[in-house]
Simulated assay, not measured.
Amino acid sequence: MRLLILTRRLDCLGENDVPISNAFRRLGWEVVFSEITAIGADDYRYFTRGVLVPATGEPYHLGSAAQGTRGVYFLDECQLVWVNSGAPPSVARDVWQLLWLASQHTTFVNSIEGSLFLETKHALGHVVPKENRASSYASNDFSLLWKRYRQSPELWWVAKPPNSYCGQNVFLLPPNGPNVRTILQCLTGNADAQSGFGGLAERESIVTQNRSSYGPLGFKAEYAILQQFIPEVERGEKRVIVACGQAVAWHGRKGSPDDHRSNIAQGAKPIPVDLHSGEVELAESIGRKLMKYGINFVGLDMAYPYIVELNLINPGGLYDAKLASGIDRSDLVADLIISRFKKCGYS
């Protein structure tokens, strides 16, 4: 049996590449590591250039380089494909298209369409019950976000891009904050700044062009999310890994006292925590709902009773949960994934 892991770099394996590959190899599987950008097609048969690692041999460690037989491997010769990286913007459209076409003949742990359309902050309202998510507003029009912020002057808000990762460009907006207007303008692409050139008629023309027919400057507006701040976050977020609808690993995140973000990538530390029955039930209910869209491995950011974010492509948590608790849950994840797809029948 063979698992293909599509990752970002072969010379530095990441926090899911390592435990997942080690677990599958312990179960007797070969593993092919390949960079996400190495996908291609030979007369419409989809392949990748990568490294084949036998089931036997030394386990990998975080940051290891993939060692094995380099070659060209066809996706339809693999029983499972696990996408552990997004593609660079310059080739993302082609990569996702090729992967979706390949997935019509090969089994993916997380479906391409589910990963592509649900790996966004826009998707919370689709899979998370209303009582378990914060109120939010999405737009690429600065004036609409600014109006919504000013309608509730007593509230704290969080502003962020809908498709960023690792806490990038996430801002905490206090009531009557002096920089809120600037932050919202920045997150929406400073489209209104184009109106600062020329006379009134010209400025109005440029803004109209930017928002409709793109005009000579191209379309400048960008989407942003304005989300009501959840006080429960201050008591600590938890990352919960759900595999095939079962909560399998979790840890808390202790952030820096000078940063409102609790992302590990922003300096937060994983800490051991317990999950109570309500947290387990919520995580697993969302996991089961995501399975309907072909998502079988997800990392949930939870500040109970709220779900803050869904993480579908390479969600951190499995490795950090081991650091926090000393317990490696990767064998359980591999067992669950293999059992699920055996029932479904490998394509």
Results as ranks from 00 to 15, higher is better:
residue 2 R to P: 08
residue 279 E to H: 09
residue 83 V to W: 00
residue 250 W to P: 00
residue 134 A to Y: 06
residue 306 Y to W: 02
residue 191 A to C: 10
residue 12 C to M: 12
residue 191 A to H: 04
residue 243 A to K: 03
residue 329 R to F: 08
residue 181 R to L: 09
residue 142 F to V: 15
residue 321 A to K: 11
residue 31 V to A: 10
residue 258 D to F: 10
residue 191 A to G: 08
residue 39 I to K: 02
residue 249 A to T: 11
residue 180 V to C: 10
residue 236 G to W: 01
residue 53 V to I: 06
residue 3 L to D: 04
residue 20 I to H: 06
residue 251 H to T: 15
residue 200 L to D: 11
residue 177 G to D: 08
residue 36 I to S: 05
residue 49 R to D: 07
residue 209 Q to W: 04
residue 184 L to F: 00
residue 182 T to M: 08
residue 179 N to I: 13
residue 155 L to R: 15
residue 195 S to P: 06
residue 244 C to V: 05
residue 176 N to K: 08
residue 305 P to L: 09
residue 187 L to G: 11
residue 253 R to G: 07
residue 88 P to M: 02
residue 183 I to A: 08
residue 177 G to N: 04
residue 125 G to C: 06
residue 136 S to L: 08
residue 333 V to M: 09
residue 149 Y to D: 00
residue 147 K to V: 12
residue 309 E to L: 10
residue 95 V to T: 00
residue 151 Q to F: 06
residue 237 E to T: 05
residue 85 S to F: 09
residue 123 A to G: 12
residue 103 S to M: 02
residue 96 W to E: 00
residue 2 R to E: 08
residue 169 N to S: 15
residue 17 D to V: 05
residue 230 I to E: 09
residue 262 S to I: 15
residue 288 R to F: 05
residue 119 E to W: 07
residue 302 M to D: 10
residue 190 N to I: 12
residue 176 N to L: 11
residue 183 I to H: 06
residue 13 L to E: 00
residue 346 Y to T: 03
residue 51 V to G: 00
residue 69 T to N: 05
residue 307 I to Q: 08
residue 223 Y to F: 14
residue 343 K to L: 11
residue 164 S to P: 07
residue 96 W to V: 03
residue 322 K to E: 13
residue 287 G to H: 05
residue 19 P to G: 13
residue 259 D to H: 10
residue 164 S to M: 13
residue 100 W to N: 15
residue 310 L to T: 15
residue 9 R to M: 10
residue 343 K to S: 14
residue 139 S to I: 01
residue 95 V to Q: 01
residue 259 D to F: 09
residue 185 Q to T: 14
residue 113 E to A: 14
residue 107 T to W: 03
residue 176 N to W: 01
residue 13 L to T: 01
residue 257 P to Y: 02
residue 104 Q to F: 07
residue 192 D to A: 14
residue 125 G to P: 03
residue 1 M to E: 02
